[in-house]
């Protein structure tokens, strides 16, 4: 049987049971055994498992409760992966000299796992990823950007209603901090390849490949 599928199934079973120790343990094992790298773990196992469960459980009376518990477990898993992220970057011999990247979600955006994974991708690519977190008010963001002067700011949205807010934030960043490069990420953007342009972002980031492509275009 395909190893990837086995790993997926095992992790899914653990998450389904909401078994936090097992989930953390499984992830560490996979990374330690080099069965997956960080990107593989995130994109082939964590994200799909989480999404598949949200899907299959919608309609369940406790669906939202369970989704939140599981998101919490996955967040812990991701936190626990940080040493591996650093190790992987060291192994790649990439140093953190490409500048800072600020990763935020706007107010009322509470889905942050995607942004957390994304910040690790930037770390792996040699950026100093500053993950600000979910539900960041616009004023704080503008202040932070002025302070940090990052190479990129990545604004994340899962709920598509937040796109309207992001459009306004982008416009304001451009006005207040001319030249600031702004990127978009999150599920709200992926189904429509034109959306990022409409909200005024430079590009949409979904995978490490997108980061590399961005570097090539803006080298």
């Amino acid at each position: 049987m395909n190893a990837e599928i086995t790993d997926y199934t095992a992790f899914r079973a653990a998450l389904e049971a909401m078994d936090k120790p097992r989930c953390v343990q499984l992830a560490r094992q996979l990374l330690e055994a080099n069965a997956h790298d960080i990107v593989g773990l995130y994109t082939k196992i964590l994200a799909p498992v989480l999404n598949s469960m949200t899907d299959s459980e919608s309609g369940h009376p406790a669906a939202i409760w369970r989704e939140h518990v599981r998101s919490g477990i996955v967040r812990t898993v991701i936190e626990c992966c940080y040493p591996f992220v650093l190790a992987e970057r060291a192994a790649r011999q990439t140093t953190a000299d490409k500048g800072k990247v600020v990763i935020v979600s706007p107010t009322d955006e509470f889905h942050e796992l995607g942004a957390r994974m994304g910040s690790d991708f930037f770390t792996l690519q040699g950026y100093e990823a500053i993950y600000v977190g979910a539900n960041t008010p616009k004023a704080e963001l503008l202040q932070g950007l002025a302070l940090e002067k990052p190479a990129y700011v990545v604004i994340n949205a899962v709920n598509f209603y937040n796109l309207f807010k992001i459009k306004k934030i982008v416009a304001e960043i451009k006005e207040r901090l001319p030249g600031q490069r702004i990127l978009a990420s999150g599920n709200a953007f992926y189904h429509d390849p034109e959306l990022f342009r409409q909200i005024g972002a430079l590009a949409v980031i979904r995978t490490p490949d997108d980061i590399r492509q961005l570097e090539e275009e803006h080298a």
Binding site: T54, N159, F160, Y161, L163, F164, N187, H191, D192
Partner: peptide, 23 residues
């Protein structure tokens, strides 16, 4: 946010027109 599609009007123009992403 529960609609399939949200259209924003601003000053008499469509400023943003987005559809709900499929999960």
């Amino acid at each position: 946010e529960k609609a399939d599609r949200i259209v924003e009007i601003r000053d008499g123009r469509i400023s943003l027109d987005v559809t709900r992403p499929m999960i």
